[in-house]
Amino acid sequence: MPPETSALQMILTADPTLWAIVRLSLIVSLSAVVLAALIGIPLGAFVALTRFRGREGFIVLLNALMGLPPVVVGLAVYLLLSRAGPLGPLGLLFTPAAMVVAQTVLVTPIIAALSRQTIEDLWTEYRDELTAMDVGPFARVATLIWDGRFSLVVALLAGFGRAAAEVGAIIIVGGNIDGFTRTMTTAIALETSKGDLPLAIGLGVVLIGIVIIINALAWMLRRAGERMAG
């Protein structure tokens, strides 16, 4: 049987190995995006709305960090979590938690940089109105995040795309342990090198399908929101 046919069969018969890998991948990447959003959106808002010494340099750095090499992040998180590292006693290395940490580090600059741009553009538009209405600083941030929510979804999508597609960081800190830390990307890399193409192709198809579905849902959400909120 050609590998493409076998791959399709694995997807259609809900092969447990394949779906366990898909499930773990989604848990890790979505957890990382949620954590990165909790850090990145407030950070983006802070940089957008405050003036401090070195702000321009910080923005350049934040933008540059969007292109962080995953293997470098993997190495840095590995050093942090390894037995001799500062966070070694937590015993997180080679666990899904370590993979979440690595992906959070990768995704946070993306969400923070895109959020900053969105919130700063909106602030330029709203500044006079909110100031004239004597809206306080916390209410301003809440307003800008709420009114920019449809654009911020794009930032989250970009972060999810980065997390779901990367392999370099999680293979270093997760170890690609079968049944424990094996995700779609690490499994594709491994199975391809082993010559087990059906599983690799099956995972690749599922990965692309997930990315398309999530983007389509977000796009529909954004369109519906814009129709309702303007």
């Binding site: 538009e125 709203y126 006079d128 109105e129 004239a132 209405m133 004597d134 809206v135 209410a139 307003t143 009114d147 909120a229 303007g230």
Partner: peptide, 25 residues
Amino acid sequence: AIVFQRPAMLRRSAADNIRYALNAA
């Protein structure tokens, strides 16, 4: 209060724009 030459409309309904100002006040 002030109305600007090109007022910014908040991304919500007309009624909720007023509601926002009522909240702020």
